[in-house]
Design a protein around this nucleic acid. Structure first.
Length: 538
DNA sequence: GTGATGGTTGGTACAGTGTC
DNA sequence: GACACTGTACCAACCATCAC
């Protein structure tokens, strides 16, 4: 079940709750002759709605979903998805969290209608009917990790907020001596640390593995020997598991691979960044919450990688390989495969070749992110409705290379504008873990199978390495290269002399640097320029 | 300056789906 | 049934921030 389906269920529940309230109010209609009585009843109702609201806020703060769990079950039953009823799963908790928000908004609106205000604004943007479903999904993603949004955590210090479902002695292990288990603490960590959904999901996998191997024990019983055992066992897991392997228990999987030395295993860096990071984050959280005195996972390291395991660094595209790309069907024959998302297949690689931008930065461009300053057309890489950026330091304006303009990029933009699109590449699926996941998958296959570049060190990111190398070869100042690529150079001086958009260099300063990307040893003559029907000037 | 931590992004294997 | 294409989960690389 993806986030869109989850949001769909939440909205359905919101409408059911709202219409139920409407019927209740209809039943309570009081004839005009009893207006005074109605006033008293109405005041009582308003008071009770305030109490309901306060209760929901408390539930959201405490992560207590018991009030809506029955509704979630019923909705899952209706959709024949009872397999998702697992209190430990993120999907289930997201549903519960969304249902609570739905109930709160329905209650708020009913409260306003009790006061005869039938045009009140939606306080929770999740239920605002003027927003598109994509926008709502996006808002929901931003507000979860499954963590309640700040709006719903008002005045709730993390150290005070604990699950009301737990017995009091469990709520504060420090006082009672009974500590929460690893999974209980992980759930709490998710709620209070504002982690991204993907990170929470990734860490959930690691915590499940830990429990498979070591057991879901109270956190104070976890020793450094347990962590070392966990680390050593996880290192035996294979990379890129099959579905069958994913369904196996961790211990069962490891024992099934005994003696199979030829199978590639997780690299020490992955064990460190994911497996140890997950358990360390949870135990570290326990220390912050004063449940533990020490994080026993903190100082457990990983072995140094063997020579053959050392990381394969990303490579730039040589002139020969750029030529292979340009000679391929998308660029020389106007081929537009479905997976390449129409014109995206042509423009995104070309834009990255002449800007060095990251794939998601370009895939997520909106029409409003393309502008013109003192005669210089530019891409404005910034946070927008379609996607977030890696960090604020990547916000930047990049002049558009004259080659892109000559090939008709502005004509393409005009067709998008006339079609009423907000996005420049609206066919790139915005669903999935990141906006460009599916497109990236297509490009990777196209690069290997159609173009024939098989070297694993070369991938889409190689455009970025290529631009950096080309600019440095042309002796463009490193700080300008960083400004174009959106790298933070960490200098304190970099924070000074910025304009209102936070940018260090003017378009006039950056334009010559971008035009230095000439790729002299690449032949562009076979490139088939896209053609667009645009209104001709009379 | 360095290492730990938290988080994002892109590549790839695999299963599912559609088309012929 | 073969093949092409798509969606998803997971891995690995990378980046930013913070504490020391």
């Amino acid at each position: 079940m993806n986030d869109k389906e989850i949001v769909d269920m939440i909205l359905t529940f919101f409408h059911n709750e709202s219409s139920e309230d409407f019927h209740l109010r209809q039943m309570a209609v009081i004839p005009e002759m009893h207006r005074e009585e109605f006033k008293e009843i109405s005041e009582e109702r308003i008071k009770s709605r305030d109490a309901v609201d306060a209760e929901i806020v408390e539930n959201l703060q405490n992560g207590d979903f018991s009030a809506v769990e029955g509704d979630v079950w019923q909705e899952l039953l209706m959709r024949d998805r009872l397999d998702l009823v697992d209190e430990e799963s993120i999907i289930y908790r997201k549903l519960c969290y969304g249902f609570l928000r739905a109930r709160r908004e329905a209650n708020r609106r009913a409260s306003m209608e009790d006061k005869l205000d039938f045009n009140a604004n939606f306080q929770d943007p999740l239920f605002d009917p003027d927003r598109s479903i994509e926008e709502i999904v996006r808002l929901f993603r931003l507000s979860t990790g499954i963590i309640p949004n700040e709006d719903y955590c008002e005045n709730a210090p993390a150290s005070q907020a604990t699950s009301s479902k737990q017995a009091p002695e469990q709520r504060n292990g420090q006082r009672s001596g009974i500590k929460p288990t690893v999974t209980e603490l992980f759930e709490k960590w998710c709620r209070f640390q504002s982690v991204a959904i993907k990170t929470a999901t990734d860490f959930e996998t690691q915590i499940k593995r830990f429990c498979d191997l070591v057991g879901d024990r109270p956190v104070d019983e976890i020793t450094s020997d347990d962590i070392i055992y966990f680390r050593d066992e996880v290192e035996k897991l294979p990379v890129r598991m099959t579905h069958k392997q994913r369904k196996m228990g961790t211990k069962e999987l490891i024992s099934s691979l005994e003696g199979r030395e030829e199978i590639p295993r997780l690299k020490p860096q992955t064990v460190k960044n994911k497996s140890l990071a997950a358990i360390s984050a949870v135990l570290g959280f326990a220390v912050k919450e004063r449940i533990l005195n020490e994080n026993v996972a903190q100082r457990i390291g990983v072995r140094k990688p063997k020579e053959h395991e050392k990381e394969v660094k990303g490579l730039f595209f040589s002139s020969d390989r750029l030529q292979m790309i340009l000679n391929s069907p998308v660029f020389s024959e106007g081929f537009r495969p479905l997976g390449g998302a129409g014109e995206t297949a042509f423009w995104v690689p070309m834009i990255c070749m002449f800007t060095g931008a990251r794939l998601t930065e370009v895939c997520g461009l909106e029409i409003a992110d393309v502008g013109c300053e003192k005669g210089v057309d530019y891409f404005f890489i910034r946070h927008n409705k379609t996607r977030d950026l890696k960090s604020d330091s990547t916000i930047r304006k990049i002049p558009i290379h004259s080659k892109l303009l000559a090939w008709g990029f502005k004509d393409y933009l005009e067709t998008q504008r006339k079609a009423g699109q907000d996005r420049v590449f609206e066919k790139v699926n915005a669903e999935g873990p990141s906006i460009s996941s599916a497109w990236s998958a297509w490009w990777s296959r196209y690069l290997r199978k159609k173009i024939g570049i098989l070297d694993p060190r070369v991938n889409f990111h190689s455009f970025r390495h290529t631009v950096r190398r080309e600019l440095l070869d042309k002796e463009v100042r490193e700080s300008i290269v960083d400004a174009i690529l959106g790298h933070s150079n960490g200098n304190v001086s970099e924070r000074y002399g910025r304009d209102e958009d936070g940018l260090s260099y003017s378009m006039q300063r950056l334009k010559p640097a971008i035009e230095a990307l000439t790729y002299e040893h690449v032949d562009f003559s076979r490139l088939q320029k896209p053609k667009y029907k645009t209104a001709r000037k009379r």
